[in-house]
Design a protein around this nucleic acid. Structure first.
Length: 513
RNA sequence: GGCGCCGUAGCCAAGCGGCUAAGGCAGCGGAUUGCAAAUCCGCCAUCCCCGGUUCGAAUCCGGGCGGCGCCUCCA
Protein backbone atom coordinates (compact mmCIF):
# COMPACT_ATOMS: atom_id res chain seq x y z
CA UNK A 1 0.00 0.00 0.00
CA UNK A 2 1.46 3.28 -1.11
CA UNK A 3 0.86 6.30 1.07
CA UNK A 4 1.13 9.88 -0.07
CA UNK A 5 1.38 13.12 1.87
CA UNK A 6 -1.35 15.44 0.72
CA UNK A 7 -0.84 19.17 1.22
CA UNK A 8 -4.61 19.54 1.14
CA UNK A 9 -5.16 17.40 4.23
CA UNK A 10 -1.68 17.85 5.71
CA UNK A 11 -1.58 14.12 6.33
CA UNK A 12 -0.38 11.00 4.63
CA UNK A 13 -3.22 9.25 2.88
CA UNK A 14 -3.54 5.84 1.28
CA UNK A 15 -2.98 6.19 -2.43
CA UNK A 16 -6.17 5.41 -4.29
CA UNK A 17 -6.47 6.49 -7.87
CA UNK A 18 -9.46 8.07 -9.56
CA UNK A 19 -9.48 5.29 -12.12
CA UNK A 20 -8.23 1.93 -10.89
CA UNK A 21 -4.77 1.17 -12.19
CA UNK A 22 -4.25 4.56 -13.77
CA UNK A 23 -2.50 7.66 -12.50
CA UNK A 24 -2.47 11.16 -13.92
CA UNK A 25 0.22 13.53 -12.68
CA UNK A 26 0.51 17.22 -13.48
CA UNK A 27 3.68 18.98 -12.44
CA UNK A 28 4.13 22.72 -12.71
CA UNK A 29 7.17 23.42 -14.81
CA UNK A 30 9.16 26.57 -15.37
CA UNK A 31 8.56 29.91 -16.94
CA UNK A 32 11.15 29.81 -19.66
CA UNK A 33 12.71 33.25 -19.54
CA UNK A 34 16.21 32.36 -18.37
CA UNK A 35 18.39 29.25 -18.28
CA UNK A 36 17.33 26.72 -15.70
CA UNK A 37 19.20 26.35 -12.45
CA UNK A 38 19.39 23.33 -10.19
CA UNK A 39 16.18 24.29 -8.39
CA UNK A 40 14.27 23.69 -11.60
CA UNK A 41 15.49 20.12 -11.67
CA UNK A 42 14.25 19.13 -8.23
CA UNK A 43 10.60 18.60 -9.15
CA UNK A 44 11.20 16.89 -12.49
CA UNK A 45 13.75 14.48 -11.03
CA UNK A 46 11.54 13.60 -8.09
CA UNK A 47 8.42 13.18 -10.16
CA UNK A 48 10.29 11.20 -12.77
CA UNK A 49 11.36 8.85 -9.98
CA UNK A 50 7.80 8.78 -8.62
CA UNK A 51 6.41 7.93 -12.02
CA UNK A 52 8.98 5.18 -12.52
CA UNK A 53 8.13 3.78 -9.12
CA UNK A 54 4.38 3.88 -9.77
CA UNK A 55 4.83 2.15 -13.12
CA UNK A 56 7.04 -0.38 -11.39
CA UNK A 57 4.25 -0.84 -8.85
CA UNK A 58 1.81 -1.72 -11.59
CA UNK A 59 0.14 1.56 -12.52
CA UNK A 60 -0.28 3.07 -15.91
CA UNK A 61 0.94 6.62 -15.44
CA UNK A 62 0.63 9.79 -17.47
CA UNK A 63 3.06 12.52 -16.44
CA UNK A 64 2.58 16.08 -17.64
CA UNK A 65 5.01 18.96 -17.09
CA UNK A 66 3.91 22.28 -18.43
CA UNK A 67 6.08 25.01 -19.88
CA UNK A 68 4.97 28.58 -19.38
CA UNK A 69 6.04 30.45 -22.48
CA UNK A 70 4.02 33.62 -22.15
CA UNK A 71 4.28 35.74 -19.06
CA UNK A 72 5.25 39.18 -17.77
CA UNK A 73 8.82 38.13 -17.00
CA UNK A 74 9.18 36.74 -20.47
CA UNK A 75 7.92 39.95 -22.00
CA UNK A 76 10.31 42.04 -19.93
CA UNK A 77 13.28 39.82 -20.66
CA UNK A 78 12.63 39.65 -24.37
CA UNK A 79 12.41 43.42 -24.47
CA UNK A 80 15.72 43.68 -22.61
CA UNK A 81 17.40 41.34 -25.02
CA UNK A 82 15.55 42.79 -27.95
CA UNK A 83 14.45 39.40 -29.27
CA UNK A 84 10.90 38.21 -29.87
CA UNK A 85 9.34 36.55 -26.87
CA UNK A 86 8.70 33.37 -28.79
CA UNK A 87 12.36 33.15 -29.74
CA UNK A 88 13.55 33.63 -26.17
CA UNK A 89 11.02 31.09 -24.95
CA UNK A 90 12.08 28.54 -27.55
CA UNK A 91 15.71 28.99 -26.63
CA UNK A 92 15.10 28.61 -22.90
CA UNK A 93 12.76 25.68 -23.44
CA UNK A 94 15.51 23.93 -25.36
CA UNK A 95 17.90 24.60 -22.49
CA UNK A 96 15.36 23.15 -20.04
CA UNK A 97 14.85 20.06 -22.17
CA UNK A 98 18.57 19.43 -22.49
CA UNK A 99 18.92 19.63 -18.72
CA UNK A 100 16.06 17.21 -18.17
CA UNK A 101 17.61 14.80 -20.58
CA UNK A 102 20.91 14.97 -18.75
CA UNK A 103 19.05 14.20 -15.53
CA UNK A 104 17.52 11.09 -17.11
CA UNK A 105 14.07 12.62 -16.78
CA UNK A 106 12.69 10.51 -19.59
CA UNK A 107 9.26 9.56 -18.38
CA UNK A 108 7.38 12.75 -19.19
CA UNK A 109 4.49 12.14 -21.57
CA UNK A 110 3.49 15.71 -22.37
CA UNK A 111 5.11 19.13 -22.19
CA UNK A 112 2.18 21.40 -22.98
CA UNK A 113 2.94 25.05 -23.75
CA UNK A 114 0.66 27.86 -22.75
CA UNK A 115 0.86 29.47 -26.16
CA UNK A 116 -0.30 26.26 -27.80
CA UNK A 117 -3.40 26.11 -25.63
CA UNK A 118 -4.80 29.61 -25.97
CA UNK A 119 -8.16 28.34 -27.25
CA UNK A 120 -8.59 26.06 -24.29
CA UNK A 121 -7.59 28.87 -21.94
CA UNK A 122 -10.11 31.24 -23.49
CA UNK A 123 -12.82 28.58 -23.29
CA UNK A 124 -12.19 28.02 -19.61
CA UNK A 125 -12.07 31.74 -18.92
CA UNK A 126 -15.36 32.24 -20.76
CA UNK A 127 -16.95 29.49 -18.70
CA UNK A 128 -15.88 31.19 -15.50
CA UNK A 129 -17.30 34.50 -16.70
CA UNK A 130 -20.58 32.83 -17.71
CA UNK A 131 -20.91 31.12 -14.38
CA UNK A 132 -20.31 34.35 -12.54
CA UNK A 133 -16.98 33.42 -11.05
CA UNK A 134 -15.09 35.94 -13.13
CA UNK A 135 -15.69 39.41 -14.51
CA UNK A 136 -14.31 41.57 -17.23
CA UNK A 137 -12.78 44.91 -16.42
CA UNK A 138 -11.25 47.20 -19.02
CA UNK A 139 -10.20 44.34 -21.26
CA UNK A 140 -8.88 42.24 -18.38
CA UNK A 141 -10.70 39.30 -16.87
CA UNK A 142 -10.39 38.64 -13.16
CA UNK A 143 -11.37 35.75 -11.00
CA UNK A 144 -13.77 36.91 -8.31
CA UNK A 145 -12.38 35.36 -5.18
CA UNK A 146 -15.47 36.36 -3.21
CA UNK A 147 -17.48 33.86 -5.28
CA UNK A 148 -15.33 30.96 -4.23
CA UNK A 149 -16.49 29.77 -0.84
CA UNK A 150 -13.58 27.51 0.03
CA UNK A 151 -10.87 29.75 -1.35
CA UNK A 152 -7.70 29.21 0.68
CA UNK A 153 -8.24 25.58 1.54
CA UNK A 154 -4.88 24.50 0.18
CA UNK A 155 -2.66 27.16 1.70
CA UNK A 156 -4.69 27.78 4.83
CA UNK A 157 -5.38 31.40 4.04
CA UNK A 158 -8.56 33.33 3.64
CA UNK A 159 -9.16 35.98 1.05
CA UNK A 160 -9.72 38.77 3.54
CA UNK A 161 -6.41 37.92 5.13
CA UNK A 162 -4.48 38.87 2.03
CA UNK A 163 -2.20 41.77 2.58
CA UNK A 164 -1.64 42.43 -1.05
CA UNK A 165 -2.61 45.75 -2.48
CA UNK A 166 -3.57 44.19 -5.72
CA UNK A 167 -0.58 45.37 -7.70
CA UNK A 168 -0.80 47.74 -10.61
CA UNK A 169 -4.19 46.33 -11.55
CA UNK A 170 -5.74 47.26 -8.20
CA UNK A 171 -7.97 49.87 -9.77
CA UNK A 172 -9.55 47.37 -12.13
CA UNK A 173 -10.19 44.66 -9.57
CA UNK A 174 -13.14 44.33 -7.24
CA UNK A 175 -10.88 42.98 -4.54
CA UNK A 176 -7.15 42.95 -4.06
CA UNK A 177 -7.24 39.17 -3.81
CA UNK A 178 -8.75 38.78 -7.27
CA UNK A 179 -6.32 37.55 -9.85
CA UNK A 180 -6.10 37.85 -13.62
CA UNK A 181 -7.34 35.13 -15.94
CA UNK A 182 -6.77 37.27 -18.98
CA UNK A 183 -4.68 40.40 -19.39
CA UNK A 184 -5.29 42.96 -22.08
CA UNK A 185 -2.31 43.63 -24.29
CA UNK A 186 -0.39 46.85 -24.20
CA UNK A 187 0.91 48.04 -27.55
CA UNK A 188 3.77 45.90 -28.80
CA UNK A 189 3.08 43.01 -26.45
CA UNK A 190 2.41 39.53 -27.76
CA UNK A 191 -1.32 38.94 -27.84
CA UNK A 192 -4.13 36.74 -29.04
CA UNK A 193 -7.67 37.72 -29.95
CA UNK A 194 -10.33 36.92 -27.40
CA UNK A 195 -13.93 37.86 -26.54
CA UNK A 196 -12.43 40.58 -24.33
CA UNK A 197 -10.10 42.00 -26.92
CA UNK A 198 -6.49 41.24 -27.66
CA UNK A 199 -4.57 39.92 -24.74
CA UNK A 200 -2.78 37.03 -23.11
CA UNK A 201 -3.44 34.52 -20.35
CA UNK A 202 -2.86 35.28 -16.70
CA UNK A 203 -0.40 33.18 -14.82
CA UNK A 204 -2.58 30.45 -13.33
CA UNK A 205 -5.24 29.72 -15.90
CA UNK A 206 -2.98 27.79 -18.28
CA UNK A 207 -2.48 24.99 -15.77
CA UNK A 208 -6.19 24.64 -15.18
CA UNK A 209 -6.82 24.54 -18.92
CA UNK A 210 -3.99 22.21 -19.88
CA UNK A 211 -4.43 19.76 -17.03
CA UNK A 212 -8.10 19.45 -17.95
CA UNK A 213 -7.27 18.81 -21.57
CA UNK A 214 -4.63 16.18 -20.88
CA UNK A 215 -5.71 14.58 -17.61
CA UNK A 216 -9.36 15.41 -17.14
CA UNK A 217 -11.36 17.41 -14.64
CA UNK A 218 -10.22 15.41 -11.67
CA UNK A 219 -6.84 13.78 -11.81
CA UNK A 220 -4.67 12.05 -9.24
CA UNK A 221 -1.59 14.07 -8.39
CA UNK A 222 -0.78 17.71 -8.82
CA UNK A 223 2.80 18.55 -7.96
CA UNK A 224 5.11 21.50 -7.77
CA UNK A 225 7.53 23.34 -5.56
CA UNK A 226 6.43 24.39 -2.10
CA UNK A 227 6.59 27.99 -3.25
CA UNK A 228 3.70 27.38 -5.60
CA UNK A 229 1.17 26.47 -2.93
CA UNK A 230 0.16 30.08 -2.76
CA UNK A 231 -0.94 31.75 -4.87
CA UNK A 232 -0.46 29.53 -7.91
CA UNK A 233 -2.05 26.27 -6.83
CA UNK A 234 -4.64 27.94 -4.65
CA UNK A 235 -5.77 29.87 -7.69
CA UNK A 236 -5.72 26.83 -9.93
CA UNK A 237 -8.03 25.10 -7.51
CA UNK A 238 -10.33 28.12 -7.42
CA UNK A 239 -10.52 28.26 -11.22
CA UNK A 240 -10.86 24.59 -11.97
CA UNK A 241 -13.22 23.69 -9.19
CA UNK A 242 -15.45 26.70 -9.77
CA UNK A 243 -15.66 25.85 -13.45
CA UNK A 244 -16.18 22.12 -13.00
CA UNK A 245 -17.83 21.68 -9.65
CA UNK A 246 -15.54 18.81 -8.78
CA UNK A 247 -12.12 18.42 -7.17
CA UNK A 248 -9.20 19.29 -9.40
CA UNK A 249 -6.72 16.79 -7.99
CA UNK A 250 -6.86 14.13 -5.29
CA UNK A 251 -3.34 14.60 -4.01
CA UNK A 252 -1.32 17.79 -3.90
CA UNK A 253 2.35 17.05 -3.54
CA UNK A 254 4.93 19.75 -2.95
CA UNK A 255 8.65 19.35 -2.97
CA UNK A 256 10.98 21.25 -0.67
CA UNK A 257 13.06 23.99 -2.20
CA UNK A 258 16.72 24.04 -3.02
CA UNK A 259 18.40 26.58 -0.83
CA UNK A 260 21.74 28.22 -1.13
CA UNK A 261 23.46 27.43 2.15
CA UNK A 262 25.35 30.68 2.36
CA UNK A 263 22.50 32.81 1.24
CA UNK A 264 19.08 33.71 2.44
CA UNK A 265 16.22 32.38 0.40
CA UNK A 266 15.82 29.66 -2.12
CA UNK A 267 18.05 29.19 -5.09
CA UNK A 268 17.15 31.59 -7.85
CA UNK A 269 14.50 33.29 -5.76
CA UNK A 270 14.02 37.02 -5.82
CA UNK A 271 15.02 37.34 -2.21
CA UNK A 272 18.20 35.41 -2.65
CA UNK A 273 21.10 37.40 -1.36
CA UNK A 274 24.30 36.84 0.52
CA UNK A 275 23.55 36.11 4.14
CA UNK A 276 25.78 38.86 5.34
CA UNK A 277 27.97 41.60 4.06
CA UNK A 278 27.32 44.10 1.39
CA UNK A 279 28.80 42.80 -1.78
CA UNK A 280 30.13 44.76 -4.64
CA UNK A 281 27.94 44.06 -7.60
CA UNK A 282 30.47 42.06 -9.58
CA UNK A 283 31.44 40.13 -6.50
CA UNK A 284 27.82 39.35 -5.80
CA UNK A 285 27.45 38.00 -9.29
CA UNK A 286 30.40 35.74 -8.80
CA UNK A 287 29.16 34.44 -5.53
CA UNK A 288 25.72 33.71 -6.82
CA UNK A 289 27.37 31.98 -9.71
CA UNK A 290 29.33 29.77 -7.39
CA UNK A 291 26.14 28.89 -5.55
CA UNK A 292 23.23 27.02 -6.95
CA UNK A 293 21.64 29.79 -8.94
CA UNK A 294 24.04 29.60 -11.83
CA UNK A 295 22.91 27.96 -15.02
CA UNK A 296 22.40 24.28 -14.60
CA UNK A 297 24.45 23.49 -17.65
CA UNK A 298 27.49 24.93 -15.87
CA UNK A 299 26.89 22.53 -13.01
CA UNK A 300 26.86 19.68 -15.48
CA UNK A 301 30.37 20.60 -16.46
CA UNK A 302 31.40 20.05 -12.88
CA UNK A 303 29.52 16.95 -11.79
CA UNK A 304 28.25 13.91 -13.55
CA UNK A 305 24.51 14.08 -14.22
CA UNK A 306 23.98 10.86 -12.32
CA UNK A 307 25.68 12.30 -9.25
CA UNK A 308 23.36 15.28 -9.33
CA UNK A 309 20.36 13.02 -9.73
CA UNK A 310 21.49 10.84 -6.83
CA UNK A 311 22.08 13.96 -4.76
CA UNK A 312 18.53 15.13 -5.38
CA UNK A 313 17.14 11.72 -4.49
CA UNK A 314 19.28 11.20 -1.41
CA UNK A 315 16.77 12.92 0.83
CA UNK A 316 13.02 12.95 1.17
CA UNK A 317 11.36 15.17 -1.42
CA UNK A 318 9.51 17.35 1.04
CA UNK A 319 12.64 18.33 2.87
CA UNK A 320 14.45 21.47 1.75
CA UNK A 321 17.94 20.81 0.42
CA UNK A 322 20.88 23.07 1.09
CA UNK A 323 22.82 23.46 -2.06
CA UNK A 324 26.48 22.79 -1.55
CA UNK A 325 29.08 21.59 -3.96
CA UNK A 326 30.85 19.79 -1.14
CA UNK A 327 27.71 17.75 -0.56
CA UNK A 328 27.35 16.82 -4.20
CA UNK A 329 30.97 15.76 -4.12
CA UNK A 330 30.33 13.58 -1.08
CA UNK A 331 27.45 11.93 -2.84
CA UNK A 332 29.71 11.33 -5.80
CA UNK A 333 32.29 9.68 -3.56
CA UNK A 334 29.63 7.40 -2.14
CA UNK A 335 28.40 6.44 -5.58
CA UNK A 336 31.80 5.15 -6.55
CA UNK A 337 31.08 2.13 -4.39
CA UNK A 338 28.35 1.20 -6.85
CA UNK A 339 30.50 1.75 -9.91
CA UNK A 340 33.30 -0.33 -8.42
CA UNK A 341 30.87 -3.08 -7.58
CA UNK A 342 29.58 -3.11 -11.16
CA UNK A 343 33.11 -3.73 -12.39
CA UNK A 344 33.68 -6.32 -9.74
CA UNK A 345 30.51 -8.13 -10.74
CA UNK A 346 31.64 -8.14 -14.33
CA UNK A 347 35.01 -9.63 -13.38
CA UNK A 348 33.36 -12.37 -11.37
CA UNK A 349 30.30 -13.16 -13.42
CA UNK A 350 31.63 -12.21 -16.83
CA UNK A 351 28.51 -10.21 -17.46
CA UNK A 352 27.93 -6.48 -17.57
CA UNK A 353 25.74 -5.03 -14.84
CA UNK A 354 24.05 -2.88 -17.43
CA UNK A 355 23.21 -5.91 -19.55
CA UNK A 356 21.26 -7.53 -16.74
CA UNK A 357 17.50 -7.75 -17.21
CA UNK A 358 15.33 -5.20 -15.41
CA UNK A 359 12.01 -6.25 -13.97
CA UNK A 360 9.45 -3.82 -15.30
CA UNK A 361 7.08 -4.56 -12.43
CA UNK A 362 7.85 -5.29 -8.84
CA UNK A 363 5.99 -8.59 -8.85
CA UNK A 364 8.32 -9.72 -11.61
CA UNK A 365 11.32 -8.96 -9.46
CA UNK A 366 10.25 -11.29 -6.69
CA UNK A 367 12.11 -14.53 -6.29
CA UNK A 368 12.25 -17.43 -3.92
CA UNK A 369 15.24 -16.97 -1.67
CA UNK A 370 14.79 -20.37 -0.07
CA UNK A 371 17.29 -20.73 2.76
CA UNK A 372 20.18 -19.14 0.90
CA UNK A 373 21.64 -16.71 3.46
CA UNK A 374 22.63 -14.22 0.78
CA UNK A 375 19.28 -14.23 -0.93
CA UNK A 376 17.42 -13.99 2.35
CA UNK A 377 19.35 -10.79 3.04
CA UNK A 378 18.82 -9.53 -0.49
CA UNK A 379 15.10 -10.00 -0.04
CA UNK A 380 15.24 -8.14 3.23
CA UNK A 381 17.01 -5.15 1.70
CA UNK A 382 14.66 -5.19 -1.25
CA UNK A 383 11.74 -5.07 1.15
CA UNK A 384 13.31 -2.17 3.04
CA UNK A 385 13.62 -0.32 -0.25
CA UNK A 386 10.00 -0.98 -1.17
CA UNK A 387 8.75 -0.02 2.29
CA UNK A 388 10.60 3.28 2.09
CA UNK A 389 9.24 4.08 -1.35
CA UNK A 390 5.72 3.02 -0.44
CA UNK A 391 5.87 5.49 2.42
CA UNK A 392 5.44 8.75 0.55
CA UNK A 393 8.26 8.00 -1.88
CA UNK A 394 11.03 8.14 0.67
CA UNK A 395 13.95 8.10 -1.72
CA UNK A 396 16.37 8.87 1.11
CA UNK A 397 15.52 5.65 2.90
CA UNK A 398 15.43 3.78 -0.38
CA UNK A 399 18.91 4.83 -1.43
CA UNK A 400 20.11 3.77 2.01
CA UNK A 401 18.77 0.29 1.31
CA UNK A 402 20.69 0.30 -1.96
CA UNK A 403 23.94 0.95 -0.11
CA UNK A 404 23.22 -1.89 2.28
CA UNK A 405 22.52 -4.17 -0.62
CA UNK A 406 25.85 -3.50 -2.33
CA UNK A 407 27.70 -3.97 0.90
CA UNK A 408 26.06 -7.35 1.40
CA UNK A 409 26.93 -8.34 -2.15
CA UNK A 410 30.55 -7.26 -1.70
CA UNK A 411 30.77 -9.26 1.49
CA UNK A 412 29.51 -12.29 -0.36
CA UNK A 413 32.17 -11.91 -3.04
CA UNK A 414 34.78 -11.63 -0.26
CA UNK A 415 33.47 -14.57 1.75
CA UNK A 416 33.19 -16.84 -1.27
CA UNK A 417 36.53 -15.65 -2.62
CA UNK A 418 34.93 -15.24 -6.00
CA UNK A 419 37.61 -12.86 -7.22
CA UNK A 420 40.20 -15.60 -6.95
CA UNK A 421 38.42 -17.57 -9.62
CA UNK A 422 34.84 -18.65 -10.04
CA UNK A 423 35.50 -22.14 -11.29
CA UNK A 424 33.32 -24.73 -9.60
CA UNK A 425 31.39 -21.99 -7.83
CA UNK A 426 28.42 -21.84 -10.13
CA UNK A 427 25.88 -21.80 -7.33
CA UNK A 428 27.60 -18.87 -5.63
CA UNK A 429 27.87 -16.92 -8.86
CA UNK A 430 24.20 -17.59 -9.57
CA UNK A 431 23.25 -16.25 -6.15
CA UNK A 432 25.44 -13.19 -6.68
CA UNK A 433 23.80 -12.64 -10.01
CA UNK A 434 20.34 -12.80 -8.48
CA UNK A 435 21.35 -10.26 -5.87
CA UNK A 436 22.83 -8.00 -8.51
CA UNK A 437 19.76 -8.31 -10.69
CA UNK A 438 17.78 -7.10 -7.68
CA UNK A 439 20.13 -4.16 -7.25
CA UNK A 440 19.65 -3.24 -10.88
CA UNK A 441 15.89 -3.60 -10.62
CA UNK A 442 15.59 -1.32 -7.58
CA UNK A 443 18.01 1.29 -8.90
CA UNK A 444 16.09 1.38 -12.18
CA UNK A 445 12.88 2.03 -10.28
CA UNK A 446 14.49 5.32 -9.22
CA UNK A 447 16.00 5.98 -12.63
CA UNK A 448 19.51 5.27 -11.35
CA UNK A 449 22.37 3.37 -12.98
CA UNK A 450 20.40 2.95 -16.16
CA UNK A 451 23.37 3.27 -18.47
CA UNK A 452 27.10 2.79 -18.07
CA UNK A 453 28.79 6.00 -16.99
CA UNK A 454 30.65 7.63 -19.76
CA UNK A 455 34.32 7.07 -19.21
CA UNK A 456 35.29 10.62 -18.56
CA UNK A 457 38.22 12.12 -20.46
CA UNK A 458 39.69 8.70 -20.97
CA UNK A 459 39.63 8.85 -24.67
CA UNK A 460 40.53 5.72 -26.43
CA UNK A 461 44.24 6.25 -26.54
CA UNK A 462 46.13 3.17 -27.55
CA UNK A 463 49.48 4.78 -26.81
CA UNK A 464 48.52 5.32 -23.17
CA UNK A 465 47.15 1.79 -22.99
CA UNK A 466 50.36 0.36 -24.35
CA UNK A 467 52.55 2.42 -22.06
CA UNK A 468 50.48 1.41 -19.06
CA UNK A 469 50.73 -2.22 -20.04
CA UNK A 470 54.49 -1.85 -20.20
CA UNK A 471 54.73 -0.16 -16.80
CA UNK A 472 52.49 -2.73 -15.18
CA UNK A 473 54.57 -5.46 -16.74
CA UNK A 474 57.84 -4.06 -15.44
CA UNK A 475 56.35 -3.50 -12.03
CA UNK A 476 55.01 -7.02 -11.77
CA UNK A 477 58.37 -8.46 -12.78
CA UNK A 478 59.98 -6.36 -10.06
CA UNK A 479 57.45 -7.65 -7.58
CA UNK A 480 58.26 -11.21 -8.52
CA UNK A 481 61.92 -10.49 -7.91
CA UNK A 482 60.98 -8.85 -4.61
CA UNK A 483 62.34 -5.60 -5.92
CA UNK A 484 59.64 -3.62 -4.15
CA UNK A 485 61.54 -0.36 -4.33
CA UNK A 486 61.11 -0.29 -8.09
CA UNK A 487 57.54 -1.58 -7.92
CA UNK A 488 56.51 1.04 -5.39
CA UNK A 489 58.29 3.78 -7.25
CA UNK A 490 56.25 3.00 -10.34
CA UNK A 491 52.99 2.91 -8.43
CA UNK A 492 53.67 6.01 -6.38
CA UNK A 493 54.68 8.01 -9.39
CA UNK A 494 51.54 6.94 -11.18
CA UNK A 495 49.47 7.90 -8.14
CA UNK A 496 50.87 11.40 -8.39
CA UNK A 497 49.78 11.45 -12.01
CA UNK A 498 46.26 10.56 -10.95
CA UNK A 499 46.47 6.91 -11.89
CA UNK A 500 45.53 4.21 -9.40
CA UNK A 501 46.88 0.68 -9.64
CA UNK A 502 45.01 -2.19 -8.06
CA UNK A 503 46.59 -5.61 -7.68
CA UNK A 504 43.99 -8.32 -7.76
CA UNK A 505 44.10 -12.08 -7.99
CA UNK A 506 43.27 -11.78 -11.65
CA UNK A 507 46.01 -9.26 -12.41
CA UNK A 508 46.76 -5.58 -12.04
CA UNK A 509 44.25 -2.99 -13.19
CA UNK A 510 44.67 0.71 -13.57
CA UNK A 511 42.22 3.55 -13.56
CA UNK A 512 42.37 7.28 -13.90
CA UNK A 513 40.75 9.67 -11.52
C1' G B 1 1.45 40.48 11.66
C1' G B 2 -0.89 35.86 9.14
C1' C B 3 -0.06 30.67 7.10
C1' G B 4 3.50 26.72 7.31
C1' C B 5 8.09 23.81 7.74
C1' C B 6 12.46 22.23 10.21
C1' G B 7 16.15 21.25 14.60
C1' U B 8 18.81 13.22 14.97
C1' A B 9 26.84 11.75 15.49
C1' G B 10 32.27 16.35 12.80
C1' C B 11 29.08 16.91 8.00
C1' C B 12 24.66 14.89 5.12
C1' A B 13 20.54 11.89 6.36
C1' A B 14 16.37 7.68 7.44
C1' G B 15 13.15 7.12 11.38
C1' C B 16 5.89 8.80 11.99
C1' G B 17 4.73 5.35 20.07
C1' G B 18 7.86 -0.34 21.69
C1' C B 19 13.64 -4.96 18.42
C1' U B 20 20.72 -3.09 20.32
C1' A B 21 18.31 5.02 16.75
C1' A B 22 19.21 2.86 8.90
C1' G B 23 22.62 4.53 5.41
C1' G B 24 26.45 7.93 3.12
C1' C B 25 30.95 11.24 3.71
C1' A B 26 35.03 12.10 7.07
C1' G B 27 37.89 9.75 11.24
C1' C B 28 39.91 5.67 14.23
C1' G B 29 41.04 0.25 15.05
C1' G B 30 41.26 -4.62 12.68
C1' A B 31 41.09 -8.53 8.56
C1' U B 32 43.16 -8.86 3.66
C1' U B 33 47.81 -7.11 0.86
C1' G B 34 55.16 -7.65 0.14
C1' C B 35 53.32 -2.52 0.94
C1' A B 36 49.07 -0.27 -1.18
C1' A B 37 44.25 0.39 -3.64
C1' A B 38 39.60 -1.82 -3.36
C1' U B 39 36.57 -4.83 -0.16
C1' C B 40 34.90 -6.65 4.53
C1' C B 41 34.49 -6.38 10.08
C1' G B 42 34.39 -3.19 14.39
C1' C B 43 34.21 1.78 16.92
C1' C B 44 32.03 6.81 16.77
C1' A B 45 24.52 9.85 18.69
C1' U B 46 20.07 8.73 24.21
C1' C B 47 17.75 12.42 19.20
C1' C B 48 17.87 21.64 20.67
C1' C B 49 15.81 22.83 25.91
C1' C B 50 11.75 22.44 29.68
C1' G B 51 7.22 20.39 31.06
C1' G B 52 3.10 16.90 30.00
C1' U B 53 0.39 12.35 28.04
C1' U B 54 1.69 7.00 28.21
C1' C B 55 3.51 0.78 31.07
C1' G B 56 6.71 2.91 27.21
C1' A B 57 8.43 8.97 23.11
C1' A B 58 13.54 11.01 18.74
C1' U B 59 8.53 9.87 17.47
C1' C B 60 2.10 12.61 20.48
C1' C B 61 0.64 17.52 23.26
C1' G B 62 2.05 22.46 25.49
C1' G B 63 5.84 26.19 26.23
C1' G B 64 10.64 28.02 25.10
C1' C B 65 15.18 28.70 22.05
C1' G B 66 17.29 28.42 17.17
C1' G B 67 17.00 28.04 11.63
C1' C B 68 13.91 28.55 7.22
C1' G B 69 9.80 29.10 3.53
C1' C B 70 5.36 31.57 1.84
C1' C B 71 2.02 35.85 2.17
C1' U B 72 4.83 39.91 -4.24
C1' C B 73 7.70 36.89 -9.69
C1' C B 74 9.13 31.91 -8.39
C1' A B 75 10.33 24.70 -9.23
Amino acid sequence: MIRVYNTLSKTKEPFETVTPGKVGIYLCGPTVYKPSHIGHMVGPVIFDAIKRYLVYSGYEVTLVINVTDVDDKLIVESANQNVPMSELAAEMTADYMRNLKAMSVESVDHFPRATENIDEIIRLTATLVEKGFAYESAGDVYFDVAQCRDYGKLSGRSADQMQGEGGEAAGRKRSAADFALWKSAKPGEPSWPSPWGNGRPGWHIECSAMSRRLLGRTFDIHGGGLDLVFPHHENEIAQSESAHGQPMAKYWMHNGLMQASDEVGKVGGRNTRAAEGDLASQEAGKISKSRGSSAFRDLLAQFSPETIRFFLLSTHYRRPIDYSEARIEQVGTGMEAFYRFFKRFERVAGESFHALPVAARRVQGEFDSGKDPLLVDVTRHRQAFLDAMDDDFNTGGATGALFELVRRLNKFVDDEKLEAGAKGKDAAVAALRQGTVTLRELAAALGLFLKPVEEKQVKADSLVDDLMALLIDIRNESRKKKDFATADRIRETLTKLGITLEDRPGGTEWSRK
